[in-house]
Every structure is written in C-alpha cells, then in structure tokens.
Computed example of a mutant assay.
Amino acid sequence: MTAALQRVPCTVITGFLGAGKTTLIRNVLEQAGGRRIAVLVNEFGDIGIDGEILRNCGIEGCTDDDVLELANGCICCTVADDFAPALDRILSLEPRVDHILIETSGLALPKPLVQAFNWPGIKSRVTVDSVVAVVDGPALAGGRVAADMEALAAQRVADELLDHDDPIEEVFDDQVACADLIILSKADLLNEGDLASAEGRMNGHVRAGTKIVPGMNGKVDVGVLLGLGLAVENDIENRKSHHDGADDHEHDDFDTFVLDLPAVASPEALARKVAAAAEAENVLRLKGFAHVEGKPMRLLVQAVGPRVTHHYDRPWKADEARGTRLVVIGLKGLDRTAVEKLLAA
C-alpha cells in the first residue's frame, strides 16, 4: 500500500451558526456501515454543547474516545496549538480510524485549516477528502445567510467606522467558496419556489462545478459525503477568499457567554423565552440543554434567531447533575444581563 493510500481521509464540515452541521454529522455516524469514524468538534463558547450531543448520541460503535473537542478557540486561528495535537490523539486510537469528520465553529474559515494539511508533520498522515459547507435553506430563501440579518444590516449602515462588507457575509462567502459540496439544510421546510430561491441565492458565491444537495432533516446519503478523494490541500490556493494575503482575522464582531439556569416548567415555556430574547436582544444563536421539571429526559434546545427547536435527546444519567445550561451567541455588545433576565423570567 502506498503512503497516499495509508493517509486517513478527513472531511471538513463548515457552515454558519445553526446551519445544521451537528445534525448532519450525527446522520453520517448513523450510516457509518462498520467504518470507524472519529469526530473533531471546534466549539465557539465556553462549553462543548456540540461535542456533548455527539458524545452521548447513543449510536452503536460511536464511543467517547471517538469524539474530541477544541473549545474556546477558532480552529483556523489555533492550528498549531490545538489542531495538530488533537489530530495526534485521534491518529493514535486503536483500532485505527477509517475517516475523520472535522466540524468547524460557525466563525471558522476553512482555508487556513486546509492549508495546515500541508505541514510536514501532518501531510504524510492525513488528507482532506473534501470540504462540505452546510447552509441554512430557509434563511437563504429569505435572502439572508442567517436567521436574523436585519439588525446587523442596520448597524452596518449606521456605523461609518465599520467596513463596507458585512463580516458575517464575508465568513459565509469564504466558507462556500472553499467548499466542494454544499448541503442546503432544512430543505424539508421549503416549498419548490423557496428551494429554487435558496439555490439561486448561492449564485456568485460557489465555485464552478460545486454541487448543491438539499438536506432533509439532516439526512444526506453518506455516499455523497465521504470518499470523494479530492486531496483538497493540493488545490487550496485556487480557492479564493476575502482573507487571502492577510496574516489573520478577527472575531471581535461576536460575543458569547454561558448561562446556568434553574429547571424549566415546560419545553414550550422555554422556547417562548428564547424567542423573546432573540427578538429583544438580537441573539443570533442559542444552544444547550435544559432540565424540565418532573421529566427524566434531558431537553436539547437549538435556536437560530427566534426560530427554536427542541427535543428530548436522552435520559439523565444517575451520576449527572441535572440543570439548564445554554450557550448564547450574538453581536459584539450583546447584553448578557438582559438576556439572562428574559430567559430566567
């Protein structure tokens, strides 16, 4: 077997906050078909919500050792300090992993990460099978790249010191421009006209030949996602981005914090509070777990702007402290006190 064939393929899964990356990864794990798949999750926030979702997924063959988190740091900014050691740990697992899924944070740029695959200590051991961008179908159908862009657009117009290009739009552009495959998530929520509108919104952002695949409830045939064999690291300089030539990029346009709250009366009551906080304080993204009074199951909560989803994902463990912990992400200057007051009301 040649050295190239011995390298472990990696799929980089990028996408904006709340687009559906974690749901897609869970679907891939469920369709593993005997392959050993490791997951590297890059969080934006103080706790590893996405890692916890995957680590406790209950999928046969998916163990705690197969899911590794990088918290409190954008993977594209901390490749040397965080990514390389994490990769070492994954590659040391026995039995050997067959494929690695790398879920970047919503703010990460995929290009610097892919470039790191050319480093001497990395290139001989792994290769980038493909870059997959997950985009929010309903948001795109509405002409946005996120659930609530109006407040951000108004801020940009009002503040003459801001750059002309919206930073969220730049992140979106860079992610899809680097992608080999676009997953249009939540397509089951779109009618035919909205689906066409969402796909049309991608024009001018994706590279020629990049396929756009609708995702229904996070379900995409694993054969479409894995085994593309593109060795993206060899072609990365041909994928243009807003940050080409820049030494680094800043994430100062966003604030994030964690709230620990008491048990909630019901999922519906919590959803109403989350939606109210999103509307009043321009929360872009919220995710976490909740303890519902009298219920033995843990409630998983996800919100993009005022659009809230929730479901019971698993029973509370006997040795686990039951509580409500939510990660809140918004624009710089997000009022933590106001958000906490609305959610704890």
Rank of each mutant, 00 (worst) to 15 (best):
I168H: 03
H164M: 12
A158F: 06
P167H: 00
A153S: 14
A147R: 10
F172M: 00
A177H: 08
A146S: 13
D173K: 10
D165K: 13
D148E: 14
D159M: 11
E160W: 05
D173E: 11
A177Q: 03
D148F: 00
L181T: 06
I182F: 06
V176H: 01
V176I: 10
Q155W: 11
P167F: 08
H164N: 14
E169R: 10
A139P: 11
L181Y: 04
D180F: 01
D173Y: 07
S185Y: 04
F172W: 09
M149W: 10
L161V: 09
F172I: 04
Q175R: 07
R144Q: 14
D163S: 15
I182H: 08
R156D: 05
D165A: 12
K186H: 06
Q175H: 07
A177C: 14
V157K: 12
I183M: 05
P138N: 07
I183E: 08
V176Q: 02
L152N: 11
A154H: 09
D180S: 05
L161E: 13
L140D: 00
I183S: 09
A147C: 12
R144V: 06
L152E: 08
I182D: 02
A141N: 03
A179V: 01
R144F: 08
A154Y: 08
E150N: 15
V135Q: 05
D174Q: 06
V145E: 04
L152P: 08
V145Q: 07
C178N: 05
D163P: 15
G142F: 02
Q155M: 11
V134Q: 04
V134E: 06
Q155L: 10
D163I: 09
A151N: 14
D159P: 14
G143T: 10
L140F: 07
A179K: 08
A154M: 10
S185W: 02
G137N: 05
Q155C: 10
V171G: 05
I182K: 04
K186G: 06
Q155T: 12
D136Q: 08
D159Y: 09
V135E: 01
C178Q: 02
G137Q: 02
A154G: 07
P138E: 01
V176Y: 00
D165T: 09
L161D: 14
A147Q: 12
D163K: 14
A179D: 05
E169V: 09
A151S: 14
S185A: 13
P167R: 02
